[in-house]
Write a protein that binds this DNA or RNA. Structure first.
Length: 269
DNA sequence: TCGATCCTGTAG
DNA sequence: CTACAGGATCGA
């Protein structure tokens, strides 16, 4: 589910709905979510500790723990979700890991496809972790954004989705930002002019900001995102449907073995 | 820099 | 049944 806006919604939701931050027991039900770390590492790091802060870095959720000098890095990948349940005994079967709090409630990591990850890190590693995740569009200067784009040799959409360069955009919002900026997704990042890159940067900031609001609203009920996405997508998933601007049918192509949607008239190559 | 791969669920 | 899914890593 999550790109930056959805991860942000998950974090906000946790901060609001967790009442007791003291962990009495933590368990990984599916070792692949903690691999290559052993599940016990997770349990040992969490048991008896308190979560002191919920932080989002790009699409990562960081849970800081007191005492032991550790923090958790959680990545939801495609289908992961993090939410609070009143009683761990009644969790759904797709819960891959959980932390039970002293008051009996629990934070669960629910991930049908098991693609998500939970890892334990030493507090000292936080800096290097942050260093390998690029800045979000809203926190990068246009000049820097353009400089990075011009340095790479890949298609602009792949550049947008590469978290090392710019963080937060995934398959949906990258396509939506390119549509707003009227740039063809297949164009080489290094071939775009400064004005076009500036337009794209602005579009990324806007799309993510707007999507944050709708993601949070869609996530009003703890435990599930509302059906689909309340963000009004213009092109994503709309192959064959008319472009909202010019009416030409939306095209779909493959890039990096993922689907890309765009308007062939508004976004010319 | 590209494709295959990790998993499971669901839509066609 | 196959195709495909809002992500990222790894090996070639």
């Amino acid at each position: 589910m999550p790109e930056l806006p959805e991860v942000e919604a998950v974090c906000r939701r946790l901060r609001e709905s967790v009442r007791d931050w003291r962990v009495v027991k933590a368990k990984v039900e599916r070792p692949s979510v903690s691999a290559p770390q052993a599940p016990e590492l997770f349990s040992n790091a969490c048991n008896g500790r308190s979560i002191t802060q919920v932080e989002r870095v790009g699409k990562n959720v960081i849970l800081h723990l007191d005492g032991g000098g550790h923090f958790l890095r959680i990545h939801l990948r495609m289908t992961g979700n993090l939410y609070v349940v009143p009683d761990i005994r009644f969790r759904v079967h797709t819960v891959r890991a959980w932390l039970r709090m002293e008051d009996g409630t629990a934070i669960v990591f629910d991930d049908p496809r098991c693609l998500g990850k939970i890892h334990v890190h030493d507090a000292a590693e936080l800096g290097s972790l942050l260093a390998e995740i690029g800045p979000e569009p809203s926190r990068i200067a246009v000049a820097e954004f353009a400089a990075r784009a011009r340095k790479t040799r890949k298609a602009i959409k792949l550049f947008l989705m590469d978290q090392k360069h710019v963080s937060g955009l995934g398959n949906i919002y990258a396509a939506e930002a390119l549509f707003r900026a009227r740039i063809h997704p297949g164009k080489l990042a290094s071939s775009l002019s400064r004005p076009r890159l500036a337009r794209l940067h602005q579009a990324c900031v806007e799309v993510l900001e707007e999507a944050k609001e709708s993601a949070y609203r869609a996530y009003a009920e703890p435990g599930s995102f509302a059906e689909g996405e309340s963000f009004p997508v213009a092109v994503y998933g709309r192959q064959g449907e008319p472009c909202p601007v010019c009416g030409k049918p939306v095209h779909r192509i493959a890039q990096g073995s993922r689907s890309t949607y765009f308007c062939p008239r508004c976004q010319r190559s």
